[in-house]
Amino acid sequence: MLHQLTVPEAFAGTIAMLLLLVQLSLFRSMVIAEFIRVYAIQAWLVAAICFGVGVTEGWAWDLLLLAVLTIVFKGTLLPRYMQGLVRNISSRVELPARINVLASLLLAGALIGLAVLTSIQLPLHQGAFLPQADLATALSMVFVGFLVAILRPNALAQVIAFLTLEDGLFFGTVTLAPGLPFIIGVLLLLDALVAVVVFGVLVRALVERHDAAGIAVFQRLRG
């Protein structure tokens, strides 16, 4: 029997699917600017769901504030900063991929399937905001994030992959544990910010040396 959805749930579900779709588009993006754009879009979507949950939870001020902060930092500042990073590199450089787009998508599909299958088996839905889709979506986004980082051997692509992965977490946090105190949410945000800055330092160093953010050179340490 089909589960009866409430309006907020339907809204959140839709956004969740959008998040996933947007993330999947990373597989076919060929230039770094597209990656950054994808990330910005995802930030807005995450903010939207945060907002939605905040409204449903009885206009919880912390979630609403978090949504705003997300838009400010993730949706605006971080993409700007990254575009600044990219400016030094020729943006026409095509990002390499280990396998072709179709195969990547098939793999991603398989991972999403796995995520859904496993999360359905996990009896864990009391008090959650999205009873069926929450964990499945979060896990799917984490898995796909991993897959992007694995399949795109480029430093910036990997950073973006990590950030989208973290978006998945953010989504999970908001839907699975909407009560998680506000300060934690803010810390998560700040953390992402600092992490990106540090990533940025490293990427810059890499670019200075090799004039590109490819990480094929990162194969010296082995054994």
């Binding site: 991972l111 796995l114 496993t118 996990l122």
Partner: peptide, 25 residues
Amino acid sequence: TQSGVIAAYLTYILVFTILLLALYP
């Protein structure tokens, strides 16, 4: 296994995670 390829390292984590989750029941 320690091939120096970062993608391989991430794959280990991903596969291990999926394995544990899939086997959880």
